[in-house]
């Protein structure tokens, strides 16, 4: 058990170091740097060089890399090249936006996806099942930027039920939630469709298992049977849910752009465009932490749900 835990911790550490190293060199491999971009079209070459020196971009890559780890291990994420303030402060301001958006979207996707999936899985071959399948296909294929714009057109412009874009930074929780509903729905739709389809398939697979046939022949009520089937089928969804939760982070990038939300996604996009290396790296640290945490949580939940895994 201890050895298992140790290997796991070790593999996580290797993954974290490898990811952050790749991100460190990948952003620097992009043509152009922060000084060139801040300089734009209107700055003479000498001034761009001066800026490069001021931002520490003229140092050898190896020096920058060592400094990065030295700072990171002390909990210092560095200073934004573009905004010239601590990356930690920037991420703290943005994190809650993305977390509430992702949390809301995930809850929506989970509830609606499971509901549709379970209903469809119980009545395979019926019209309802067909409709559900069709809807999930549409849900999966709609690009987020397009779906988001359609929702804005219908609910914000035509009906005026929801605010157009943006998010108040402070103030009433209800108002902020109201701003987050359309973006969350946009994010949730493809994920709900994915969950619904998988839940349906898992139910179908499980329903053809031997114990179900035996139970049915012994006259177990369909209701009780569904409970048993679901209890066996659903833990199989956990790895997918973990993936979806992680994938939400990338989804928020698009949705935050469409709805003008000041979250981590817009920060990351802006930082890549500006070659603001410390900020890109800071977001990468957060993303790695979230992935590790979510996968670990999925493992634990799966162990709790499936006694066999606990005793192996």
């Amino acid at each position: 058990m201890l050895r298992l835990a140790l290997t796991q911790v070790l593999s996580v550490l290797v993954a974290v170091v490898a990811t952050l190293t790749v991100v460190f060199f990948a952003v620097r491999a992009l043509p152009g740097d922060a000084a060139v971009i801040l300089g734009g079209l209107e700055t003479q070459t000498e001034q761009v060089e001066a800026l490069r020196g001021e931002l520490g971009l003229d140092l050898p890559l190896s020096v920058q890399y060592v400094r990065y780890w030295a700072d990171l291990l002390r909990g210092d994420l560095g200073t934004s090249l573009r905004e010239r303030r601590p990356v930690g402060e920037m991420l703290r301001e943005r994190l809650w936006v993305t977390l509430s958006l992702a949390g809301l979207a995930f809850s929506l996707a989970l509830v609606s996806g499971l509901t549709v999936g379970l209903l469809a899985g119980r009545r395979t071959g019926t019209t309802g099942d067909g409709v559900a399948l069709g809807l999930t296909t549409v849900g999966l294929t709609l690009p987020e930027f397009w779906l988001g714009f359609l929702l804005i057109l219908l609910f914000s412009v035509q009906l005026g039920w929801f605010p157009l874009i943006g998010l108040p930074v402070e103030g009433d929780l209800g108002v902020r939630l109201w701003h987050l509903i359309l973006p969350a729905v946009t994010l949730a739709v493809p994920r709900a469709a994915q969950i619904a389809r998988l839940a349906r398939v898992r139910l179908l697979e499980e329903a053809s298992a031997d114990y179900v046939r035996t139970a049915r022949s012994k006259g177990v009520s369909p209701r009780a049977l569904t409970r048993h089937v679901a209890a066996n089928a659903l833990p199989g969804l956990l790895p997918l849910l973990a993936l979806e939760l992680g994938g939400l982070l990338t989804g928020t990038i698009v949705v935050e752009q469409v709805f003008g939300l000041p979250g981590l996604g817009s920060t990351l996009l802006g930082a890549i465009a500006a070659r603001d290396y410390p900020v890109v790296q800071g977001v990468a640290v957060l993303a790695v932490l979230v992935y590790v945490l979510v996968n670990w949580l999925a493992d634990v939940l799966q162990m709790l749900a499936d006694p066999r895994l606990r005793y192996e």
């Binding site: 714009f149 412009v157 874009i165 003008g260």
Partner: peptide, 18 residues
């Protein structure tokens, strides 16, 4: 001053009075 990347959203925002 609102930063709205999408020109279509800018026009829809005018129409919605935002």
């Amino acid at each position: 001053i609102r930063f709205v990347a999408d020109p279509a959203v800018q026009w829809q925002g005018l129409r919605a009075g935002a």
